[in-house]
């Protein structure tokens, strides 16, 4: 997963993201979309929002993982090619938030996926926080 030189530069320069809503109330989704649209525009750093998990480098999970969405989240994670990173955006995606312990909620993405690389707390986090998280992931890709 670690890469240096040209490949490390290329990976850090083109983090394509896939956004998956596992049951969020839409607040975090709106903030993720705000990070993509004119005011914050993360395409400056080379980030593109892609449609297919096969094309993505970073999986952005928003919302508590419900029982219905759990197998789908795992499947989407497995469909992504290595090297892949996961970013949990919002309190719900980290721990389940206010929905933790509900009969239909399996907790956050951390409880379901083998690894979550970065947690962005907030309810919802501001687009600046999401961009900061993205920068942190880019630093890790370059290292």
């Amino acid at each position: 997963m670690r890469a240096t030189g040209l490949i490390g530069w290329a990976r850090a320069s083109s983090p394509w993201i896939l956004h998956f809503n596992t049951g969020a109330c839409n607040a975090c989704d709106i903030e993720v979309v705000a990070a993509l649209t004119p005011r914050f525009d993360i395409e400056r750093f080379g980030a593109l929002k892609v449609g297919s998990p096969r094309h993505a480098d970073i999986l952005i999970v928003t919302g508590p993982v419900t029982r219905e969405s759990r197998p789908r989240l795992i499947r989407i994670y497995e469909q992504m090619p290595e090297p892949k990173l996961v970013m949990a955006v919002g309190t719900c995606a980290i721990s389940g938030g206010v929905f933790a312990g509900c009969y239909n909620v399996c907790g956050g993405a951390c409880n379901v996926l083998p690894k979550v690389d970065l947690l962005v707390p907030g309810c919802p986090p501001k687009p600046e926080a999401i961009i900061n998280g993205l920068m942190e992931l880019i630093k890790r890709l370059r290292r």
């Binding site: 040209l6 490949i7 290329a10 990976r11 320069s13 480098d57 090619p81 090297p83």
Partner: peptide, 16 residues
Amino acid sequence: LQPVADFIKLLSKEDM
């Protein structure tokens, strides 16, 4: 250099 970076990154990714 954005398209070049995209191209090199995709070349280095896992092939499925």
